[in-house]
């Protein structure tokens, strides 16, 4: 019995019943991103400050004077959730140092979409991770600029049609492969990096809880289905989140102290058509083009397996360990 089945049996009762991101917000029907955010908040609990980049989640949760947030929340422009989070963390530490607030753990959590993380926010994210702030950063990746109307980002997958990478007579949609930000975070020496998807809620919650325990920076890349942007039926959100994992397009894994581990094992990868077919953004692709993408998925999946099989935890890589003989 694998670990996830164990959680399926026992953990639901342990999930916080309180909602820290309340209903009444303005997200689209079937929004995977807001579901991810809600689950994240349940895992975090009340002792947090959220630094939210501009994007769908900021817009739908905050229209003045109302707010969906039951925890302290700050939005400061698009490109700087990680920088703002760093400053909040420094501020809270200063208040504790001066004895102005109780000496308890308040976790700072940066939240941004794929654009706010992978494109315009990458520099600020890199800076914050390098400086080692006690901060969790969660990328809610729905693979395009959905808030502004489905424009491509560096998180948009090859072949997907968006309003700025439209499929046409001489174009087959997005022409580049998705940027691998979790790997960039591992390269920063971040001691906890994970991928997640709200279609696997307990896996996600578990990862958020692990990340919270890290004293220093941690990063979770959360895959979130966007029915509006992907032109997929809203009732298929959870199903698509499962299919993206079952096809191996977005494997769920974690990297603890440099050691890779698959958290959701898939015995036999399903063909990627199963995942792509219900989505309008892939409708124009020819079988040849799908085959090219399928090959890449296998390649990336094997690269990951290689790391899982081959890499050691950083703490094991001492001089005495013998690699230098």
């Amino acid at each position: 019995m694998n670990i996830i089945e164990n959680f399926d049996l026992y953990a639901p009762r342990l999930v916080d019943k309180k909602e820290y991101l309340c209903s009444g917000h303005r997200a689209c029907q079937g929004c995977g991103e807001v579901l991810g955010l809600r689950l994240m908040c349940k895992a975090l609990g009340p002792d947090v400050v959220i630094a939210n980049a501009t994007g769908c989640m900021e817009i739908i949760s905050s229209m003045y004077p109302s707010t969906a947030w039951e925890v302290p929340w700050i939005h400061v422009a698009f490109e700087n959730a990680a920088a703002v989070g760093s400053g909040v963390e420094a501020g809270l530490k200063a208040l504790r140092r001066k004895g102005k607030i109780a000496d308890r753990d308040v976790k700072v959590v940066g939240v941004a979409g794929d654009g706010g993380t992978m494109d315009i926010g990458l520099q600020a994210l890199s800076g914050a991770m390098e400086r080692g702030h006690d901060m969790l950063f969660v990328c809610l990746d729905n693979e395009a600029y959905m808030n502004t109307g489905i424009q491509r980002s560096s998180g948009t997958p090859m072949g997907a049609s968006t309003t700025t990478s439209p499929a046409g007579k001489v174009s087959s949609g997005q022409k580049t492969w998705k940027k691998n930000v979790p790997e960039i975070m591992v390269a920063h020496g971040v001691s906890y990096v994970a991928t997640a998807c709200p279609s696997y809620p307990l896996d996600f919650i578990n990862k958020v809880k692990k990340a919270m325990k890290v004293k220093g920076p941690s990063y979770i890349h959360c895959f979130t289905v966007c029915p509006t942007g992907w032109r997929s039926p809203s009732e298929m959100t959870i199903k698509l989140g499962r299919l993206v994992v079952e096809t191996g397009i977005f494997p769920l894994y974690e990297v603890e102290d440099g050691k890779y581990r698959m958290t959701v094992e898939v015995d036999q990868l399903r063909p990627i058509e199963d995942y792509m077919k219900p989505q309008g953004r892939y409708r124009h692709l020819t079988p040849d083009q799908i085959e090219i993408i399928q090959d890449r998925v296998y390649q990336e999946y094997n690269k990951l397996q290689d790391k899982i099989n081959g890499l050691h935890a950083w703490s094991d890589l001492q001089y005495e360990w013998g690699l230098f003989d």
């Binding site: 817009i59 229209m63 003045y64 947030w69 929340w73 939005h75």
Partner: peptide, 8 residues
């Protein structure tokens, strides 16, 4: 808890 930087 307060929310700062809302949509207005």
């Amino acid at each position: 808890p307060c929310a700062f930087g809302s949509l207005v």
